[in-house]
Design a protein around this nucleic acid. Structure first.
Lengths: 190, 190
DNA sequence: TTAATTTCTTAAGATATCTTAAGTAGATTG
DNA sequence: CAATCTACTTAAGATATCTTAAGAAATTAA
């Protein structure tokens, strides 16, 4: 595993790792490459991996009782993605993770990660901090939902994640924002 | 700090601490007691503490643009509560935390906790795990909101947290569920 | 380049939920 | 005990958003 991926910067952004530590840690990751519309995790399977996106764009979603896709997460370059609930509890995942664009990702499986936590307490610290940040982010997103109407959610979305509006089809943004595509279309017109 | 509080069980539920470790850790906590309607954290202040509720019931809320209370969290015995965003980023808290019942809580401030992380890596592991669980819980709650209509959110709430329905006034439950008290009243009737 | 598929738009009618305003019951305080 | 405040209920009208159905536009495949 060559160690000049952007993940290195990500590690060092939060924790002061040595080269040697990073190299040892990264040696346990594997690079996975996916085409468009390929599955990283299938609903119903236990999620044994965390993925760090090197390049590309993925979404996490599930089908509701009417068979409509409900997207609950996107991830792009330098984001971690996994199904946390499934990963932590080792229960079947309620979501699938699938690429929207061709994607390269570094993946690490749970057991290996647990071993690395023991060997490198700094890595556990890194993920304690990352998890806190994820918690803050999801709370933020939550507040946006509770406080804003559809139109403002959309405006907030394209303002805070402008590149997504370019790279993600509108109906997927609608799904993520919990708006019907028809209504989003109407909102954009007005 | 006497060490026979329930927090001890909570620590040991996730991590195998020794008596000595626990006693050292707990010696850095302080016990705080509050009456009904007392403030643990005031909106606008930086949240420097994590609280572990020994006894009682608190809520976290803020006032929206119309001056209505929006409750985003409750916590009872054996729950941790803090404003994570404020605590992590050291930014002014967007919520207040206030007791609903007279409450006893163990509190620990951020700097002391950081020191304890260094001294006791197991504690960092404990909070890494706790934070993961919080993340899962908030995602769960989030999904409930996105998938269920008001009535089902209410039914889901009284089913999954029955004692809250007893201990928390109905209009606060309405606030937590993002329903107007009038509409909740109507839903209960139907 | 045509055909097929995917994505986006339009519009009418239906529904969930809110707003406002008032009234009732219960709890707390003087 | 009376008075005040707090919590809950009722109902009418307003509004945001969804549903359904259809067609237009754009992208992908043959």
């Amino acid at each position: 595993m060559k160690s000049n991926y952007s993940i290195k910067d990500h590690f060092n952004k939060y924790i002061d790792f040595t080269e040697i530590e990073i190299d040892d840690i990264l040696s346990h990751f594997t690079l996975a490459e996916f085409d468009k519309k390929e599955i990283l995790l299938r609903e119903g399977n236990v999620c044994n991996h965390k993925f760090f996106i090197i390049e590309g764009l993925v979404r996490s979603y599930h089908l509701d009782h009417k068979g409509n896709e409900k997207i609950n997460q996107f991830a792009i370059e330098n984001w971690w993605i996994t199904n946390v609930e499934s990963f932590v509890n080792e229960t079947p995942s309620l979501t699938s993770i699938e690429t929207i664009e061709p994607t390269k990702a570094l993946k690490i499986d749970k057991n290996t990660l647990e071993d690395l936590y023991i060997k490198h307490p700094k890595l556990e610290r890194y993920f304690r901090i990352i998890t806190e940040h994820m918690l803050v982010a999801i709370q933020r997103r939550y507040e946006v939902f509770l406080q804003l109407k559809s139109k403002d959610r959309y405006l907030n979305f394209i303002k805070s994640l402008p590149e997504f509006s370019q790279r993600v089809p509108q109906y997927m943004i609608a799904s993520y924002l919990e708006i019907t595509p028809e209504y989003l279309s109407e909102l954009r017109k007005a």
